[in-house]
């Protein structure tokens, strides 16, 4: 019994390796097929890496939800501090920082670009400013209401609320994510068809062998096995080709991306290939490989019946 089980595994191993051998005997055709599968799998995976980077950038800019409340020029410090306390007690607000007109002028004087301009003024033309940081769970609509209410008040000159574009960016990323899912599904189906068709041709080329095997009493499982293993190898080869393309591609992009980030003064580090994405590429390739082979085998093997 143990011997029979041992033989079973030995036969599978033989079948698996001989399928690989078959692929290696036609290197040009096999590499072409594997290359096409690689490109088809790399495309959605590459896009998903880009989106992940986009999300990371958007996350860094979450602080852009802060909004500035400029008071009317000449408002007293007491009023500004009272307003600061009032805002801090508001439900949507996490913290409020008061930047007084003097502090603002000092900052301006320190800056290289405008430092000389400051000396021109006799009086400080700058107003007090409150920088309001909303709570993380504050919804955009609530913030908009708060900002509108503030703008109505006499002591407040201007409220600058800049959250709209962050919301838009997130919406765009959502759309891109959905598109990637769609593209990935279509391309995986494409890979399924490519492998199915390759296996179909394989079956046609080995028709004589299949007929003779069936004549000699080969079961369907026996006849099916080498083709399923061929599908497995195509899927595995295609996935590895896709990962290679992704790694090389990301390596080429990481330099310019870091430079761009530095120009914006950001500390943003471009994200590479996530483990889950790599596993997805591998899994997608193997599923499409085995699935495509199975479809071809189910359709075409049954049609081959031995004739004498």
């Amino acid at each position: 019994m143990n011997l029979a089980i041992g033989n079973y595994f030995v036969r599978h191993a033989q079948s698996c390796l001989s399928a690989l051998g078959q692929l290696c005997r036609q290197p040009a055709g096999s590499l072409l097929t594997i290359g096409v599968i690689g490109v088809a799998l790399a495309l959605p995976a590459g896009l998903s890496v880009l989106v992940r980077n986009g999300e990371a950038v958007a996350g860094q800019w979450e602080s852009a939800r802060d909004f500035s409340v400029y008071l009317q020029p000449g408002i007293a410090m007491d009023t500004a501090e009272a307003l600061q306390q009032e805002l801090e007690s508001s439900a949507d607000v996490a913290s409020v920082v008061l930047i007084t007109a003097d502090e603002a002028l000092a900052q301006l004087a320190d800056s290289s670009e405008y430092g000389e301009v400051v000396g021109v003024f006799d009086d400080n033309p700058l107003p007090h400013r409150l920088v309001v940081r909303p709570r993380d769970d504050a919804v955009p609509a609530g913030l908009a209401t708060l900002a509108d209410g503030l703008e109505q008040r006499d002591e407040i000159d201007l409220v600058r609320l800049d959250t709209a574009w962050v919301a838009r960016l997130n919406a765009i990323l959502d759309l891109v994510r959905r598109t990637i899912l769609l593209v990935a599904s279509i391309l995986t189906a494409g890979v399924l068809v490519i492998i199915g068709n390759t296996i179909r041709l394989d079956i046609q080329n080995r028709r004589a062998e299949i007929e003779v095997s069936k004549l000699l009493g080969a079961s369907d499982a026996f006849v099916r096995r080498p083709f399923l293993y061929a599908g497995f190898w195509y899927g595995l080869g295609g996935s590895l080709a896709a990962l290679l393309l992704l790694i090389v591609g990301l390596l080429l992009l990481s330099g310019p991306a870091t430079r761009l980030s530095e120009l914006y003064g950001g500390s943003f580090q471009p994200l590479g290939l996530a483990g889950s994405t790599a596993l997805g590429v591998l899994g997608g390739g193997l599923v499409a490989g085995l699935g495509g082979a199975w479809l071809a085998v189910a359709r075409h093997l049954a049609a081959i019946e031995p004739k004498i």
Binding site: L3, G6, L216, G217, A218, S219
Partner: peptide, 11 residues
């Protein structure tokens, strides 16, 4: 050897 391989005999 083919019939024997189909029948699953050891090497």
């Amino acid at each position: 050897a083919l019939p024997l391989i189909i029948a699953g005999l050891g090497q």
